[in-house]
Design a protein around this nucleic acid. Sequence first.
DNA 1: ATATTTTAGGATATTAAAATCCGTTTATCG
DNA 2: CGATAAACGGATTTTAATATCCTAAAATAT
Lengths: 161, 161
Amino acid sequence: MSHPQSGCPHPRSLFHAPTRYALQALVRMPGDGTYRLARNLAAELNLPGPFLAKILQTLAHADILESLRGPTGGFRLTRAPERITLREVVVAMEGPEPFEECLLGHAVGGEGCHCPIRPAWDILQTLLTTTLARTSLRDLQAAQSAPDRPEDPDLSVAAPV
Amino acid sequence: MSHPQSGCPHPRSLFHAPTRYALQALVRMPGDGTYRLARNLAAELNLPGPFLAKILQTLAHADILESLRGPTGGFRLTRAPERITLREVVVAMEGPEPFEECLLGHAVGGEGCHCPIRPAWDILQTLLTTTLARTSLRDLQAAQSAPDRPEDPDLSVAAPV
DNA sequence: ATATTTTAGGATATTAAAATCCGTTTATCG
DNA sequence: CGATAAACGGATTTTAATATCCTAAAATAT
């Protein structure tokens, strides 16, 4: 029976679609100071050009990309990919509040939430946040070329970075 | 700037809203064989009656609830709450496929995904799944009454249950 | 200067999720 | 057996997410 009331085509993703597109676009950004065209990038990602352009604009507002108009224009990274974290990108696209505090929908702030899964939920959120914070865009770009699996992540989620 | 294009009211939840409602409703189901009214339950949860009724129907199809029509009718658990797992409820509401395999949107099946965050993502999914599978509805009900924090979850996510 | 190319960004359209409505069926009660 | 009360389930509406469109502004080239 599955979904409440409708056939659901693809499996759910953790973040919104534009966040995925943002990551996919950033991976393809040149490392030198070259500007890249939105239209060009959109074709490569099989996305509608104007839609990707919006996403790139959002990234530009977040100081992850910078833009130049006119011919020879386009978008480029504001910094070296080593200095851009995935967390930064996700925050730019999704906002600073990642998720609700627990599965029953209790709000951030945590008072009055006594779910037994709450501790696990907290750990999940911390692991996700720290992993995103520790991973740079460069790491993501490198992984796209090298098919080798990277090292396992650190599970000691003591201090959020 | 936050969300791509619109003000987002509440923080995003991991699952769909009806899944939360389902959990909230199940927590309030009586432990004896008593039938409980959808309308009654909806009032307690501040939800529209017919909408909650749909959700309860879905749970009934999944053999988590059973229903009886007519006066004296309503819904009740098919089993003792100790024998109903949260995972079962989530699967009933969201379907068996939990999430895409990685943040860049690569599909389940895993070929061609080389994200550096993929290992962490796999661990997150396993931790979530096992935690839900290990937690019974009874645990959830007990936690609602007792304000004490339960023990920390097991992080050795070796074998998915 | 003017034409061309690109991003900027507001407005609109489309689609899926969430919520509602209403006639039907089933059970109980008088 | 008729009246009432409940779940059943299809159809519809509403709202939020996703995608598109179009005019303006800026930079370059001729």
